[in-house]
Each structure stands twice: as structure tokens, then as C-alpha cells.
Design a protein around this nucleic acid. Structure first.
Ligand SMILES: [Mn+2]
Ligand SMILES: [Mn+2]
Ligand SMILES: [Zn+2]
Ligand SMILES: [Zn+2]
Lengths: 142, 142
DNA sequence: TTATAAATGCAACTGAGTTGCATTTAATTT
DNA sequence: AAATTAAATGCAACTCAGTTGCATTTATAA
């Protein structure tokens, strides 16, 4: 269980953020951080590729997503579609407790805070460490 | 939202089950149903291939899993590993409310019933239809 | 027994994500 | 400012779970 640097992501400048995370400030990374800060919902690889420009390299983009994820700048979300989506902030399993809402109509994924506490009742002998919640439904745009 | 035939899966003979589901009783399907009834945890494609015999065809096995899933005989579980695992019974989103426990040590996936009710608090304009819960932790064998 | 729709087997394919490696670049040192 | 160097990039090739097209076989019902 890798302890992540705790940083106020929204308050920091993009440059300062990358500095603190120990990541070099490349053009793509700065654009990525800026975009993640503005994004109203989670972003897939192809969402990002479209926004960053079709010329952006697949490996580079994926490697940056992994790097961002490792330092807790973003978290990947598995919505059972087979396509990982990414959103700003650490993952629920790394302290930033929240659920994920998947719109059944437009497939958009949102991070949602304010879930009421969940009881983890598990069979005896089992030890629950954390919970991942995916809520399916219809989003405000649909 | 496809309505599934409601059948008491555990009570029925394997033959009767396939009959009721409108599926032909092939050797592999009967073995699969039998195995799913006995299984203490969710089964991956490769678990099943090993048990059904290495000779079993990949397409046939996957197609049977899809067929079983369509009629609600089994449900697929996406545990974030990239490998779908299958267990007897309809999916939580199709009435059989339960959670999934993923062991962080042995990667085994279990269906667990008896979760306490979860409040689905979502932003205004959003409509929650169902919740999927994955509990991560350590299983009784680890 | 025959007819037929469904199931099977095989090979080729798909698509998200990864990897190896040569080249370039951001950041540090002189 | 120039040289150094570790990290980032670009590209092509790869991986691997799962899917698909199609010819052949089989379960079931007429
Ligand atoms: Mn989130
Ligand atoms: Mn289950
Ligand atoms: Zn929507
Ligand atoms: Zn275990």
C-alpha cells in the first residue's frame, strides 16, 4: 500500500503540481493537467487523444496517464465497458472516498461524493479493506 | 431492460435447467452447469478451460458463457483485473442483489449476500437505477 | 428417419493497453 | 552558456482477452 504525496490539487498551478509530483513539465503533461482540472466527467484515452490532438502518441499518452495515476494526480475508473476512464484526484481506495456514476444512456462517468456510509458485511474469515461503488443510471444530460 | 426467466437454479436438474432456458443440452453445457453449481467462487475463462479440459474450444466456451449470461443462469463479474469471472445466478443488476469480494492476495472473487442497504445519493438531475459493489480485502483462505 | 436450427471448431481478427529501443528534451551541473 | 544525464518521447511491434465468419457437426423435433 503505496503512500501518496498529499497535495491540494485544485489550488496548485499546473507547473507546481508536476514539480511536486516529481514529473518533468512537458507540453503534453501541462495540457493534460489543465484539461483534467476543467473536466466535468471522467476521460477515456480517446477523449484525451481527441482533445490533446490526434498527433499525440498512444504510448506517450498512456505512459503519462500511468505516471499521473502513480502519484495520485488522477485515478482510473473501470466502468465495466472495457475502457478505463480517468479523473482528477486520488482513487477512492487511496483515501479520496467517493463513488462513480455511469450513465447508461451516454456512457459518461462521473465521480460523485457524499455517499452515505456503507456497511461491509462479509463472511467470517474475510477481511474487507475498501469498497468500490459504481452507480448505474441516467445522468443530468440524458 | 431484458426480463429474465425466473427459475430456482439450485433446485433444478442440470438438464431441466438448460431445457427451461431454451438451450440445447450439449456435453460441455451440462458439465459447465454442474461445475458452476459446485463452485465456491467465481470462475475465469481459464479456470473453466482447465476444468472442462484443455481441448475445449475458446469460442465455444466463450459463446456458452455469453448464452448462460443472457438467460441469467450465470453473471459475469468485472473485478478490475481485466479478466471477467463468472458465477451462478443472475447479476446484481438483474434482481439478485449482492456484492463481490475480491481477495487482494489470491485474486479470487466471491459473491457475497447480506450487504446492508446503501443510500444512493446522487447529484440533482441524476437518476440512480442500481449499484454495483466490489469489496477488496483478504479472503478466508489467505 | 429426415429436416433444420443451433452448436461447434478453427483460424483470423479486434482493440485496449504495453514494451523495447533509438532519439529527443527538460532539468541539473560545470 | 555549454555540457551532462536521466527521463520523456515516437514508433513499431507485441500481448492478450474476447469476438467473428464460415464450414461442419449435432441436438431436437417433425
Ligand atoms: Mn472518481
Ligand atoms: Mn456474484
Ligand atoms: Zn448521460
Ligand atoms: Zn484469497
Amino acid at each position: 500500500m503505496l503512500e501518496q504525496t498529499k497535495v491540494n490539487i485544485i489550488d496548485q498551478s499546473n507547473e507546481a503540481l508536476l514539480d511536486q509530483m516529481g514529473l518533468k513539465k512537458t507540453k503534453l503533461r501541462l495540457e493534460l493537467v489543465k484539461h483534467f482540472k476543467d473536466a466535468k466527467h471522467a476521460q477515456s484515452y480517446s477523449d484525451l487523444k481527441q482533445i490533446m490532438g490526434e498527433g499525440v502518441d498512444k504510448s506517450t499518452l498512456y505512459r503519462n496517464l500511468s505516471a499521473f495515476e502513480e502519484v495520485g494526480l488522477i485515478h482510473g475508473i473501470n466502468d465495466h465497458s472495457g475502457i478505463t476512464k480517468y479523473a482528477l484526484g486520488a482513487s477512492p481506495s487511496a483515501g479520496q472516498e467517493h463513488a462513480h456514476f455511469v450513465c447508461e444512456s451516454c456512457e459518461t462517468v462521473y465521480c460523485v461524493k457524499g455517499m452515505t456510509e456503507i456497511q461491509m458485511k462479509v463472511p467470517s474469515g474475510f477481511k474487507a479493506k475498501n469498497i468500490q461503488t459504481i452507480i448505474r443510471g441516467t445522468c443530468a444530460n440524458c
